[in-house]
Nucleic acid binder design. Structure first.
Lengths: 241, 241, 241, 241
DNA sequence: CATGAATGAGTGTTCATTCAT
DNA sequence: CATGAATGAACACTCATTCAT
């Protein structure tokens, strides 16, 4: 009864006991909670994030969070759902309409992915999923179906197009698609783990990294391809993305 | 939940943890605790693993664990340190003595890595590091220096050898090495996260995956490489994105 | 658990408590709240009943409830008070005008009590009082004075009449009245506790039960009354236990 | 973090912040917890009792309680189990060996029940069960089978013996047994609810009450039994209600 | 009057850590 | 050395109560 203080968080936002009641918020949209949760989950991991922190960062009380999400777990699921899916429709459309070379298509794929996701907080979701997949099999399954499969399928389409048009060698596109995705995921994971805590030495320049990946994907390391005696060409003057 | 079993008949005289007494061990070496901890940390993550479980799996009591490790965090650090016991000296030696083509060297690198680490529990360490890097910056730094850097250096050596011998095109070996590591890490992460919880559809055959990676690394996807003599993995003069 | 249903799709824009809007009521009288509260308190007990449920069952919002009752405790008190609305005046009148034998009067007492109260939700009040008496001493006192005492007095009147008319043996009517009330209360309690949760085996047929009670009250179990003319309900010289 | 105080209970037993560490207890037997829980559950009801209070009263910490009982609910069940059953074997034996009149047997039944249970805290269990039966159907069923049924059966045996020996009139012993139990339970409930909070006026003298009950059970209220030779506890031709 | 979004003190439960034996 | 009973801080979640609209 005398204990009016509620916020245990001692940092910014700590509320002193006799704080003048802040003007009550109209409606703390779930969106703010989802954004706060994304930030914190990505930063600290699921288990290390306290719901009270999420609520505080969204500017609401702990109770309000549970008004919108019945449990911390559901909040987590909502964060993942909110920030994934729904982009693939757009991307599939984009590539349906693409008219350039498959090489350019692949370039566009890499760089637009980075631009649209890699530079946002949502790029931390893959790390979250990797970490928590065991603890949320249902969510892992969801992620697998709603994110990984569509991404994989999209890249397979690109590779198949390349092969069909004679641009790419015949290949097993299933594994090929994984090989395209792997370095992209590596980049995203890196940015949210080792890349942030080990000083400049561990920094990766995303642009350079992606450019190098593209080059390797297309041409490999070998000076000459035993399967193709003709010389290869350098990255041409291409459209920006 | 975990102790429900022992309490289904909670009458007077029931003693907590009254498991049938396991024959007392003479000396529970830290090694067994580290092994048990590795298993559980990899399986369930750091936060979801209880020290009591670790102790139980190692066949000792909870108290004994704290005899060897002052805290759960220190246990975690020890697990990570233990499992990066420098194989790099050995590997560096191996490659010093290697006499075949650099292409074969790269092949050997990939497959022996998988054989020696990928099939063991230690392959779960990268996932652990990804998940907990933020919470253990000091450990992340340690991992960065003791594992990532040596691995990166080793692969750089291979790539440089290839370039020096004219087998590989000139390239920025820094990024090149990351591009070799990324799919390998992806494989290790995958095996310990989404790969295990989404049924057969999400399974990756490591041998095929690595073979596909090797092929791509060496030759790329393109059917023909028109300018084989130009440096690769170097950003051409192009607009940033 | 109660709000899980509304949160299965907790996306941006979801509003808490977003039930299909019920047509707004003009005037939610306290009576409806009291009726709803009686139902729920009887069903689930005081602590296990949530005010929101009460409000919902009465078709009003949680806020409205607090417009009429300053707290959950006051609501509870009001429920108890409401349901003991003095029927005793009526009953006293009834028995003043009763012209038959005291035996019939007692029969009428038992069966009309059951008919008028036992078959309604109000029969759950005794159970509530038993459960919560300690937590609401003031209310218990109120109940004691407004319900138990009048009931006790009424039954005492009957017993005294029987004795005065020579129908009943002389007795200590204080205890006699309790002995009449006890099985009635037992019946009411039973119906709202064990009687409802243990299947048919635990069912009591109220009519038969009351008939048996009446018979026993009047004549006892003994085949013959060896001391029919001696006062009853008086402690004989017997060993204390 | 600053909030070190844990005990909100301001009464006896409250532990000040800087309490000198009490010498660590050897083994807080579950029995002490069960006793404390019985006290508090009976006093305040299940929901109003805080586990921390129970632990404090048993002289242990909250954590210790959960060492022995996996949940508050299981603690409750254990309390009920601990304090019931197991007396019926003894009682059945006692009555097998009883050689006096059935009247004396019934007297013995009433008074020994009161002596052995009524004067102990365990007499609060019936009130507990009445209050919580709805919330713990499984426990209610247990109680029904382990307590009510054996008690009912025992009393039926007595009544049958009386009838067989010609001491008691023929009767429906099922209902007869309930009529014996009802006032006994009423007494137990009374002592733990209204009896304790309404001053002297509401006090029942158990000895007198039980004596009065015995007299009534045996002989009834009527001065003379007009139908002494007819079976009792059988519905006569009377108006339905 | 009525609403329902927002609150935050309170409670059951967990689990890393301690320490007497 | 080893144990495991005991601890208590920490956290997810609840729900009576408030109040701006």
């Amino acid at each position: 009864m005398p204990n009016v203080a509620s916020h245990t968080e001692p940092q910014i936002g700590a509320l002193p006991n006799a704080q003048p009641r802040r003007s009550r918020r109209k409606s703390a949209r779930p969106g703010e909670l989802l954004a706060a949760a994304l930030d914190l989950f990505v930063e600290k991991g699921f288990a290390a994030t306290r719901v009270e922190e999420v609520a505080a960062r969204a500017g609401v009380s702990k109770g309000t969070l549970f008004l919108y999400f019945p449990s911390k777990e559901e909040l987590f699921k909502a964060v993942v759902r909110e920030n994934m899916s729904s982009r693939f429709a757009e991307w599939n459309d984009e590539f349906d309409r693409f008219e350039g070379s498959t090489r350019d298509m692949l370039r566009h794929c890499l760089f637009s992915w980075w631009e649209r996701l890699g530079t946002t907080k949502a790029s931390g979701i893959p790390k979250l999923m990797m970490s928590e997949a065991q603890n949320f099999p249902e969510l892992a399954s969801f992620y697998q179906h709603e994110v990984m499969q569509p991404a994989h399928a999209l890249i397979q389409r690109i590779l198949k197009r390349g092969v069909a048009r004679g641009e790419f060698r015949p290949m097993d596109v299933t594994y090929g698609a994984y090989l395209v995705m792997a370095p992209m995921l590596f980049l995203a994971l890196w940015q949210h783990s080792l890349g942030t805590c080990c000083g400049a030495q561990a920094q990766l320049n995303p642009q350079s990294y992606l450019a190098a990946q593209l080059d390797m994907l297309l041409y490999g390391f070998c000076a000459q391809s035993p399967l193709a005696s003709t010389p290869r060409n350098v990255l041409p003057e291409q459209t920006p993305i």
